[in-house]
Nucleic acid binder design. Structure first.
Lengths: 151, 151
DNA sequence: CTTTGTGCAAAGCGTTTGCAGAGTG
DNA sequence: CACTCTGCAAACGCTTTGCACAAAG
């Protein structure tokens, strides 16, 4: 989806929600669209200011929340004390594999796990709304390191 | 496993770790053993003091960490900003289903999900060490409420 | 008697919020 | 103009920590 289209969609949704289109909100949307990685709000704000753009941390948090409500951004906990955000435009749901040594994050989708989750919920009389799955391990590169270290 | 046995194991492990057996640590172990639910450190400390036992919050956090290292206690994030602890003595690994309305927590174990997780890791060259899976939904009781509310 | 533990209160850390002035529609 | 936003700094909620005194081995 081209940036122009997202921007229009963003503006339209803001209007629907009774919110205003501000310089800061557009800047943040633009920066989010550049990101393909998993980022945290604080670092995001820092990067903006390094780029010479001044937007306060508070506004970053507030705007990422709006983008989350609009499903433009997804929030995950990847085993750290802070939240990670990721741009979800043109992207399907997925879960994460996190390396405990180098913090590398790999995305994956395993439909059979999703199905089984549905089944578990059904069996317990729950209507599933969401789930959170992270696998923690040691990635290939870091396992190699281990091998070397043991020589 | 009888309490006496756990206590002995606790004392032995403390010794191995070069730590001392203190009144507070024993009190906390005892209280943990009484718990079958998912609790947070703060509430745990509060309950102790209601029970007339004085142990500081700091010591509760410090001791729960030790118990976690000893695998006597397990730490999970159930979608709140604080950690939940649970007594793992005589209990097998399991994941959690959380009701978004009433916060009810149901434990489940789906071996096929565990297997698929292994497979996903393998496929990505990871050695799995741990995982975190929470399903969020609306439980049977709360779905009923919805139905009533819509009448 | 040496070493570790405890309580307290303060600090940390990510995140949220109240407020006064700035900007949008 | 009326109303929402922003930036700031202070507040927050959970957790950790420095320190002086207490207790364990």
């Amino acid at each position: 989806m081209p940036y122009e289209e997202i921007l229009d969609r963003f503006k339209a949704q803001l209007k629907i929600m009774g919110l205003k289109v501000t310089r800061e909100r557009v800047i943040i949307l633009e920066e989010v669209m550049k990101r393909k990685d998993h980022f945290d709000a604080d670092q995001f704000a820092a990067d903006l200011s390094v780029g010479g753009v001044k937007v306060s941390r508070a506004t970053v948090y507030r705007t990422l929340d709006i983008l989350h409500d609009m499903k433009i951004v997804h929030k995950t906990t990847l085993g750290h004390k802070h939240q990670h955000y990721e741009n979800m435009v043109d992207r399907a749901h997925h879960d994460h594999l996190v390396c405990l040594k180098c913090d590398k994050v790999v995305e994956f989708l395993e439909p059979r796990i999703e199905e089984l989750q549905e089944k578990v919920c059904l069996d317990h009389g729950f209507v599933i709304k969401d789930h959170s799955l992270q696998l923690f391990g040691i990635c290939g590169d870091c396992t190699d390191d281990d091998a070397e270290a043991n020589n």
